[in-house]
């Protein structure tokens, strides 16, 4: 499965990437599994996703949880807890 990944705020700064297309191995089926998989993609990803418990995710622009399945997703975003307003 190929999906577009987006990173925001300090997650983007740590990975060094704003967005990218990736092809996921079939065993990656949930948001939490995707975060664990991303962690192994290099030092920047490792430092970003070392804080996985606080990182939030969205699938196709709607908030998702670690257990949310990613099947069929076109766009998955990772970001810190929001601080607008």
């Amino acid at each position: 499965m190929t999906v577009k990944l987006l990173y925001f705020a300090w997650v983007r700064e740590a990975t060094g990437v704003g967005e990218e297309e990736v092809t996921l191995p079939p065993e990656v089926t949930t948001v939490g599994e995707l975060m664990a998989w991303l962690k192994s993609r290099g030092a920047g990803y490792e430092s970003a996703f070392a804080r996985a418990p606080v990182i939030r995710a969205a699938i196709d622009r709607a908030h998702a949880r670690p257990e949310t399945p990613i099947a069929g997703a076109r766009e998955i975003a990772f970001f810190p807890p929001v601080t607008g307003g």
Binding site: A9, A58, H63, F79, P80, P81, V82, T83, G84, G85
Partner: peptide
């Protein structure tokens, strides 16, 4: 509206202090 947008709208603030240090605001 304010309580909900503050906790769900995807915005992130990065502050720069008078000394020039930049940091992400914590939720």
């Amino acid at each position: 509206l304010m309580d909900y947008l503050k906790t769900s709208a995807p915005f992130w603030k990065k502050e720069t202090t008078g000394e020039g240090a930049a940091r992400w605001v914590e939720a």
